[in-house]
């Protein structure tokens, strides 16, 4: 195990940021800490880095107890959301900083810096100042700087949060490819579920200082352990007391086995996707059900506003019963979650 976190808790004044966290991160893995703002994921990351000290519990890095070790001694690389560039140093100066501290020979430093700048495609900017780089370039510099010291673990705190959407997507892919090349244990914090799903090997969902679920992107998306995980990782809608994915709902303009009747209250088209707000006939004053499907399908089925429809979750759709308490599952095994297999509804 590269990182082992046991019973870690942290409070700031009266506010509990983390409560009794247990987590194992395997060597060489790319893990995402995913959750809403204020949920505790950054705090956890900083505790791993040694930039915060946990109130309770322990942190082990590569088998060594690092709980009381200051950040300087942990050999972790940290990348900040706003780059934390050393403004008065050039790009090369920034990247070589960690090596200079360690008093490496000049030749070694020059070679390593050149190698890293090559890796992050910033070789031609070596003598520029950070102020002369774009946001994306600064972050790549920050990454190179963190990797220069050959860290045991690479930690990134919302690394693409300050960049605009296009750059964010580019760097996201680029991080994945970098990890495939460099293979250092990497943990990154994000509140963007798309980012986590796209990049990470494993995702840890953290909310209100607790781990909601741990698993691969597929596991989390298809077999969410709780309402929170399901709604956080993707779009959800409510049908018969369950959360279900809007794209997992079969919809026809005539009745079929086990389907619920209703009518299309609103028809919205966004690009290739069509979103339907379906008001059910059961008379309950609930909000409408969201159904999404492709435009082609919508046209083929003759769907439009005001049309009477029947809907039903497809076979194998993931559903979570509403009211499922958030389980504090240790090293949550995704097969033990509260999703039940789609069955025939019990209404008449």
């Amino acid at each position: 195990m590269s990182i082992r976190i046991s019973g870690v808790g942290k409070s700031f004044g009266g506010f509990t940021a983390l409560a009794d966290i247990d987590l194992d991160i395997a060597t060489g893995e790319l893990t995402a800490l995913l959750g809403p703002s204020g949920g505790g994921k950054s705090t956890l990351l900083r505790i791993i880095a040694g930039l915060e000290v946990a109130d309770t519990g322990s942190v082990e890095i590569e088998g060594v107890d690092a709980t009381r070790l200051p950040a300087q001694k942990r050999n972790v690389g940290f990348v900040f959301q706003h780059y934390a560039a050393f403004r008065h140093l050039s790009v090369a100066g920034n990247v070589s900083f960690g090596l200079k501290i360690r008093k490496r020979p000049r030749k070694e430093i020059t070679a390593r810096v050149a190698e890293l700048l090559e890796l992050v495609h910033l070789s031609q900017f070596a003598d520029r100042l950070p102020a002369q780089l774009s946001g994306g370039q600064r972050q790549r510099m920050a990454l190179a700087r963190a990797l220069a010291i050959e860290p045991t673990v690479l930690l990134l705190d919302e690394p693409f949060g300050a960049l605009d959407a296009k750059v964010r997507r580019e760097l996201r892919n680029w991080l994945r490819r970098l990890h495939d090349e460099v293979h250092v244990t990497t943990v990154f914090v994000t509140h963007d579920q798309e980012e986590a799903l796209e990049v990470a090997d494993r995702i840890v969902v953290i909310n209100h200082g607790r781990i909601e679920q741990v698993g691969s992107p597929d596991e989390l998306y298809d077999r969410p352990a709780s309402e929170f995980v399901m709604s956080f990782l993707g779009p959800v809608t409510t049908l018969h007391g369950h959360l279900v994915r809007p794209h997992d709902l079969e919809i026809e303009t005539r009745p079929f086995g086990g389907a619920t009747p209703g009518w299309v209250e609103r028809f919205t088209r966004v690009g290739f996707e069509v979103r339907l707000d379906v008001r059910l006939d059961d008379g309950a004053a609930t909000s409408s059900v969201l159904v999404t499907l492709t435009r082609a399908d919508a046209t083929a089925k003759g769907l439009a506003e005001g049309v009477q429809v029947w809907i039903k979750p497809v076979a194998g759709a993931s559903r979570v019963r509403i009211g499922t308490p958030t389980e504090d599952v240790r090293n949550a095994d995704s097969s033990l979650n509260a999703v039940d297999a789609v069955s025939e509804p019990t209404f008449s």
Binding site: L51, Q72, A84
Partner: peptide, 8 residues
């Protein structure tokens, strides 16, 4: 903090 994480 960055400087600290790099060992300073």
């Amino acid at each position: 903090e960055a400087a600290a994480s790099l060992g300073a």
